[in-house]
């Protein structure tokens, strides 16, 4: 399963990446799984770990950690929004 992951704002700066393409290993089924998978890279990636205030979108719609990830999804991680 191949997906595109985008990072925004302070999270993009912390990680040093704005986007990447990932091939997911078996066992990464939901958004929450993906977050844990990325956080296990260690170092700055722990800012995606459990308990951190990170929001996520799948295919440009904000969703919760329980939502399933599908092949070719566009997934985005970002801090709480501050527009307006």
């Amino acid at each position: 399963m191949s997906i595109k992951v985008l990072y925004f704002a302070s999270l993009r700066e912390t990680l040093g990446y704005s986007h990447e393409t990932l091939t997911l290993p078996a066992g990464v089924a939901t958004l929450g799984d993906l977050r844990s998978h990325l956080a296990r890279r260690g170092g700055v990636w722990e800012s995606l770990g459990e308990g951190r205030n990170v929001r996520a979108a799948i295919n440009q719609e904000m969703v919760g950690a329980e939502v399933a990830v599908a092949d070719r999804d566009e997934i985005a991680f970002f801090p709480p929004v501050t527009g307006g």
Binding site: A9, S10, M62, A76, F78, P80, V81, T82, G83, G84
Partner: peptide, 14 residues
């Protein structure tokens, strides 16, 4: 619209 925009539209201020 403003209240929802503040919490749901993906903008970030630096």
């Amino acid at each position: 619209v403003m209240d929802y925009l503040k919490t749901r539209a993906p903008f970030w201020k630096k």
